[in-house]
Amino acid sequence: MIGFLTLALLVGLAIAAVRVRNLMTATAILGVYSLMMALLWCQMNALDVAFTEAAVGAGISTVLMLAALKRIGIEEHGSTHGPLARLLLRTMQEHEIQRRARGIRPERAATFAALLVCLLFGAVLLYGTRDMPKLGDPKSPANAHPEVAQHYIEESDTEVGPTNIVTSVLGDYRGYDTMGETVVIFTAALCVLLLLRHPQGRRRRS
């Protein structure tokens, strides 16, 4: 019941974040969205993921987005249409004579085209979920595999030690992946350094 309530709130928040024109409000809504998501992870007993979601999604990335907004301004400008809708809009404007003859407004046609694409994509996604196992199904392939999930749950205590199995999976069984993640974070910092630090100074020197 609470799960459905949280999911409904998530959908509402997502729509609100897209509809709002003030980007500061949209950022705040996305922060609340992340916090709701953290609640949902809690309800699924994924406490580590919930913790990360609350710290990274609701905390630091909201702060980073606000910092970025300070640079680019908090009002959304220009068209809200996506690239596909803009392409359609331009094509229809080029064939202005036909449009006038049929009496179709290109903006409305573009909106309907975008809606159609969204609905089609959503239908494909919904169709895809039919093949997924039920949430927490012990017989699903991921949970029933004797050498992966079963092994971690039964042997983690003697093989690795931590009482939190998530830690032993992240740090030990999948230590290589976690190292890759750390390098990803490092790369992000490196890219921001190269892009944002002293751009004027570098231009002057070259």
């Binding site: 980073l64 032993s168 190292m179 750390t182 992000a188 350094l193």
Partner: peptide
């Protein structure tokens, strides 16, 4: 296992802290 895990977690923490601080300062 115990000490190696502490070591790698410390490594992750150092990189994440420094990267996030750098990201915020530059933004």
């Amino acid at each position: 296992h115990h000490f190696a895990l502490i070591g790698i977690e410390l490594g992750v923490m150092i990189t994440v802290t420094a990267s996030m601080v750098t990201l915020y300062f530059e933004m």
